[in-house]
Design a protein around this nucleic acid. Structure first.
Lengths: 150, 150
DNA sequence: TATTTTTTGCAAATTAGTTGCAATTTCATC
DNA sequence: GATGAAATTGCAACTAATTTGCAAAAAATA
C-alpha cells in the first residue's frame, strides 16, 4: 500500500494479508469504513454505520481488538469511559484536542513526542508508542461564556 | 497548601474548601489515600485499600468524578478498558510508560508538551491540559524474549 | 440550633465489552 | 476445484464497571 491515497478494496485485502489476518466479511467492512471516514468512532458507532445485520457487535469488538494488536487501528480516550477507534494511517500521525464544553474535536499534527520516544529507547525500551489526548476550552466557548457573564 | 510536602489532614480540608466541595468522610478518606500513596489506582483498588465498610463504592465513583472535574485527581488509561486515578500533585507533572509485556509502570517527568499547549493557547484555547500515555517493551522483557528465542 | 442543601449507602439498573458454542467460512493442500 | 483443519462468525448468556433512584444521614447555612 502506497502512502497518501485512499484505501481501495485491494489495499484492504493487502493490509489484512500483510498482518496475517484472514479475510472475512466483518473485517473488510470495518476497515472499509475506518479507512474511508475520519472517525474516531466508538464500537457502537461503527456498528450503527455498517449495513444493518451485516456484522454482529461481538465481531466488531473482536476485530477491533485484533486490529489494535496489529497496529492497524489505534485507541483514543477522548472522553471519560468512552473508547474511540481510529484507523492508523501510517503517514498521518496525529492527536486530538477536544473542547471540554462543546466537545468539538480538532486534529493536532506534529506532537513533538518523538524526542521523548527516542529517550526511552536509549534507556532500553523498544517499540515505544504513545497516546496523547488534549483538552481545552475552545475560542468559541470562551466567547460565549464571557458574553453570558458580562 | 505549600508545594513539596506531604498532605496533612489540614491540607486536605483546605483543598476541599478551596474547591468548594463539602467535607465528608468518604472524600477525606479517598484524598488521604491518594495523596499519601503514589498510585495510580483503579476505583476498585481504592475501595479495597480503604478501611472495610468505611465508604461505599458508589461514593468512591461519585467522589472521583468530582475530583476529576475539579482537577484534584487525574485519569490515566494505562491499559485498555481500565481507568486509573491519581492525585494531581500541582508540582509534580508526570506521565507513565507501561511495559506492554510485564505491565511495569515507570514515571516520566519532563514530557515537553508544554510547548504544544502554548501553541494551542495561541489559537484560542484556554486552560489546555493533556493526557499522555506511553507503551513500550522494557529492557528486561526484551532480554527474556531474546533468550527464549535464540 | 433549625432549616436547607448536599451527600451517603444501598440496591437495582445500565452499559460496554466478553465468552461459550455450534454453525459457517476461510485457508492451505491436494 | 475439492477436502479437511483451523479460524471466525452470530447468537445469547454473562460479566464487570459504573450509574442511578431514593430515603436516611450528614454537612452547610442562616
Amino acid at each position: 500500500m502506497k502512502h497518501g491515497h485512499k484505501y481501495s478494496e485491494e489495499d484492504i485485502l493487502e493490509l489484512l494479508k500483510e498482518k496475517k489476518l484472514s479475510i472475512t466479511g466483518p473485517r473488510k467492512l470495518i476497515l472499509k469504513l475506518l479507512t474511508a471516514e475520519h472517525g474516531p468512532y466508538t464500537a457502537d458507532e461503527i456498528f450503527q454505520k455498517l449495513p444493518k445485520g451485516s456484522c454482529d457487535k461481538a465481531s466488531i469488538y473482536r476485530s477491533l481488538s485484533q486490529f489494535v494488536d496489529k497496529d492497524i487501528v489505534q485507541i483514543a480516550h477522548l472522553e471519560k469511559d468512552v473508547v474511540h477507534y481510529e484507523f492508523n494511517h501510517p503517514d498521518d500521525h496525529h492527536h486530538h484536542i477536544v473542547c471540554r464544553l462543546c466537545h468539538k474535536v480538532e486534529v493536532i499534527h506534529d506532537c513533538g513526542i518523538e524526542r521523548l520516544e527516542r529517550t526511552l529507547e536509549k534507556v532500553g525500551y523498544t517499540n515505544v508508542k504513545h497516546r496523547l489526548e488534549m483538552v481545552g476550552t475552545c475560542e468559541k466557548c470562551n466567547l460565549n461564556k464571557n458574553s453570558r457573564n458580562g
